[in-house]
């Protein structure tokens, strides 16, 4: 009896999967590169094999997010090199849900330095991207787990633009509008955490919700970085969440 139920369940899931695929998944796999191209009508982006971050993010009009590098990283308070998540070339991709209405994809990797050494402590990083039809944002849940409790600083969802800034306007709900170029004298991490933040230029807006910070790079006044920071992570597990909207 149980066996029959199991078989039926599997068949139902299979049929459900087939029907959902047939009725229009938000995710298409590029056969050549293996990349997952995601489009929910409001925005599109690509999850590249082996790579933790969304790339080639575009709004519904096809305007692309200015090319950026994600500087998500871990640094240990006792010193040593910084380990970056985008140096992981072997991140795994797992599609947890793929229906016409909901797409949940997990990327699993770890922090590395260059040359390719993984950060000590067997750190497992999972970035879960939740995309829902009809919603103009992506919910990103980041989970970290490790085998020790070495105090460290963790930066997450940390896009950075080097060179001339692609943004003309920074909007924060606390009315701390940041004028471009007002960087003289500011130091790294000048602004504290905010709940909502928007970067705008003529054709694109990037909104981020969650506990994030906005700051400029003191080594290059024209570089802007955005991200969440866990100043001291001492436990074995850590979970954070942001949503980002491109419009």
């Amino acid at each position: 009896m149980m066996k029959t139920i199991k078989i039926l369940t599997v068949m139902l899931l299979l049929i459900s999967g087939i029907s959902s695929y047939a009725s229009g998944s938000m995710c298409q796999r590029d056969q050549r590169s293996g990349a997952l191209n995601i489009d929910n009508g409001y925005f599109s982006f690509t999850l590249f094999p082996g790579h933790m971050f969304p790339v080639w993010i575009k709004n519904a009009g096809g305007t692309g997010l200015p090319p950026c590098r994600f500087l998500d990283r871990i640094t240990f308070l006792k010193g040593g090199p910084a380990y970056f998540l985008d140096m992981d070339l072997y991140a795994e991709t797992v599609i947890l849900a793929d229906t016409p209405e909901r797409l949940l994809i997990e990327k699993r990797g770890t922090y590395c330095d260059n040359p390719q050494h993984a950060a000590p402590g067997n750190i497992r990083v999972t970035y879960a991207y939740l995309i829902e039809r009809g919603k103009p944002y992506v919910t990103l849940t980041m989970t970290l787990a490790r085998d020790n409790e070495e105090p460290a600083e963790v930066r997450f969802f940390h896009p950075a633009w080097s060179g001339a800034t692609p943004w003309h306007e920074v909007i924060m709900p606390e009315d701390k509008n940041f004028a471009v170029g007002r960087g003289d004298g500011v130091t790294d991490e000048m602004y504290g955490p905010v709940q909502h933040l928007s970067l705008k230029n003529d054709s694109l807006t990037l909104q981020v919700s969650g506990v994030v910070r906005f700051f400029c790079n003191r080594f290059n006044r024209n570089s802007f970085l955005l991200g969440g920071i866990k100043d001291v992570w001492k436990s074995r597990e850590l979970t954070m969440q942001v949503t980002f909207t491109v419009k």
Binding site: P49, W56, L89, Y90, N114, Q116
Partner: peptide, 21 residues
């Protein structure tokens, strides 16, 4: 071309988004 260190991890040559760009 993928940011990988030279002469490491052979014979695996995973591309990165940077490669495509």
């Amino acid at each position: 071309w993928n940011g990988q260190t030279f002469d490491r991890d052979y014979p695996f040559f995973p591309p990165s988004p940077f490669t495509v760009e």
